[in-house]
């Protein structure tokens, strides 16, 4: 399965203000065959999403400036990114957080701490659904 995704070399946007967690996401996705563009805050994520048209976005919720919910809402308001599959990384596994993620328009959410393998399989499943 990994090989299939890799062959396609799909572009994925990863955004997190925490450099280490961002590194983890990038590592897992790159080593699963995706091309990854990294953003360090919400505005950069929004700009990159509109400019580079990734196949999927993984956004942290708690980012300075625009947070993950706000970026998701904005992405849903542009034609170019209305259908972009989005996974939100929430800080807590609380119901309120997951509800907010889905309310904002995210397709999926993953609560920290998440397993990289879990992330990979969610990305893969979401891309398969979008295809």
């Amino acid at each position: 399965m990994e090989a299939v995704a890799g062959d396609q070399g799909l572009l994925v946007l990863a955004a997190d203000d925490d450099e280490i967690v961002l590194g983890l996401v990038v590592y897992r996705l790159e080593h699963s065959g995706y091309r990854v563009i990294a953003a360090h805050d919400g505005e950069e994520a929004l700009t990159l999403a509109l400019a580079r048209r990734p196949a999927l976005a993984v956004l942290d919720v708690m980012m300075p400036g625009l947070n993950g919910y706000e970026v998701t809402r904005l992405l849903r308001s542009y034609d170019a990114t209305r259908a972009l599959p989005i996974i939100l990384l929430t800080a807590r596994a609380e119901d309120a957080d997951s509800e907010r993620a889905l309310d904002a328009g995210a397709d999926e959410y993953l609560a920290k701490p998440f397993s990289p393998e879990q992330l990979r399989s969610r990305v893969e499943a979401l891309l398969a659904r979008a295809a």
Binding site: D18, I20, Y27, R28, M62, A91, R92, F114, S115, P116
Partner: peptide, 23 residues
């Protein structure tokens, strides 16, 4: 506290998983 601990724990457990996976 929950956020500040969960973020590094995400990194620690995530990288552990990768290392233990032998990649």
């Amino acid at each position: 506290v929950s956020h500040e601990l969960r973020t590094p724990l995400t990194a620690i457990r995530g990288y552990l998983e990768i290392v233990l996976g032998g990649e």
